[in-house]
Nucleic acid binder design. Structure first.
Lengths: 242, 242
DNA sequence: GCATATTTGTCCGTATGTATA
DNA sequence: CTATACATACGGACAAATATG
């Protein structure tokens, strides 16, 4: 229950622990995550933020040395992220940041259509809280777009789709969509700067919400289908074009 | 590319390798899976077949010794299965076969309603092949029920729901549903012998297929919803009752 | 409540196999 | 083809946490 003070086992171990604890943010004391999971958290952020671009090879020795953890621990972290499809593991060649291709993006959008569509279908069965979360995300996007804060627009768009998934009220579904969206962020880094990418979707989200609040669920579902068609084509054309 | 003859490194290593290769079936030469993945395959089967029941603690030393792999490799396998929610990892206490509770089962059924419902909704967009797979699964269940082969009835029911998911044509969705169904099998072992559990669902699946082939998709979707309600209550009552 | 035994968490060294320059 | 670099996997070590008597 502790893991509080510095563990004075050996120099290297103690230093590595401190360094990792600082990276884990302020929640170090509350975290019971293993070293491997904290390493995975660090690497996941680096990949999703675009610091580690698709195709990059992650050398066990280099990364392990930089993070001050042993290769065994690092391999556990690699395995976690490979399972999340953020890294690929080539036998005897090492691990690389995944490079999603056209087929991956199409598959991701099929999965999103099914899950988010199925979740939206439960709009009337959802809790008031879950419905309000959808509204909040849409409004956050509209406000951010008005101020041309494009990063926030992107964040709000992701929150919007997570909120739609949240209508179903299943933790597993939420997690699965989070994975799908994380994988999609990889595809964004393949095609370059995604800063203004989400701009066109703000009015679509707003219109979709208006349909929901007007109690026109079937039309809202059609609007969601249209959104996916537009977004998928948008990404695919840029993936193929560049 | 080889991994053919016995590796004469040390006695224990060579024996362990052979033992695991034999367990991998005849595909040993074609398989590029790591040792950890093969160990995970073995343990996954044991858990899903009910040889390792929920709540059981998996000792690193005991399992590692029995399978002839090192603790490090075994821990990688544990990590994989924990990610699949088949095992739980309690810090400094070890890994255990997961014991799904009532909340887990409810969550699983919400997720299944969304995903399978969303996939069924795409019946008309699916390929002929995917639709035929659904029909085949239903017929296999009907035949098995006629012969009172209850294990086969259960297998066919699972195949039926995987086939419905397959209508969407997304590999990611297929994998996610496979995970959900595997987790559900854990719940079955909590409540005891699942041999005749699926019997009542055979006519429901048959009726659902009849609606699909009669081009009455909305009614088929309602039938699927009813199936989930019945099945969830069936499991939950037995989970609570025992 | 305490002392001890067991088990886990983490790291390191090393032998072997594989891919690539 | 050889040499080099690196991944795979094992075994051992020790601290920390937990379980046991």
């Amino acid at each position: 229950m502790v893991r509080r003070g510095p563990r004075l086992t050996t120099m290297t171990t103690a230093q590595a622990g401190d360094w990792l604890n600082s990276l884990a943010g302020g929640r170090a004391d509350l975290e019971r995550a293993s070293t491997a999971e904290r390493v995975a958290d660090v690497l996941r952020s680096r990949v999703l933020e675009g610091d580690l671009l698709p195709g990059l090879k992650l050398s066990e020795e280099a990364i392990g040395g930089a993070l001050g953890v042993s290769r065994n621990t690092l391999r556990e972290a690699f395995r976690l992220l490979t399972h999340e499809r953020l890294l690929v593991h080539e036998y005897s060649r090492g691990v690389f940041v995944r490079t999603p291709d056209v087929a991956d993006v199409s598959d991701l959008y099929v999965a999103r259509r099914v899950i988010e569509g199925g979740a939206l279908h439960r709009w009337h069965e959802a809790t008031d809280e879950a419905r309000q979360t959808v509204r909040d995300a849409v409004h956050a996007g509209v406000d951010a777009a008005a101020d041309e804060r494009w990063v926030d627009v992107g964040t709000a768009n992701i929150r919007f789709h997570q909120a739609i998934t949240g209508l179903a009220g299943s933790a597993r579904l939420d997690e699965q969509v989070e994975r799908l969206l994380a994988e999609l962020r990889l595809a964004f880094w393949v095609m370059g700067d995604p800063s203004e990418f989400y701009r066109d979707y703000v009015p679509m989200n707003r219109d979709l919400l208006a349909l929901l609040d007007a109690d026109r669920l079937p039309e809202a579902e059609e609007a969601l289908v249209r959104y996916f068609d537009v977004a998928e084509n948008h990404i695919l054309s840029r993936l193929r074009g560049v």
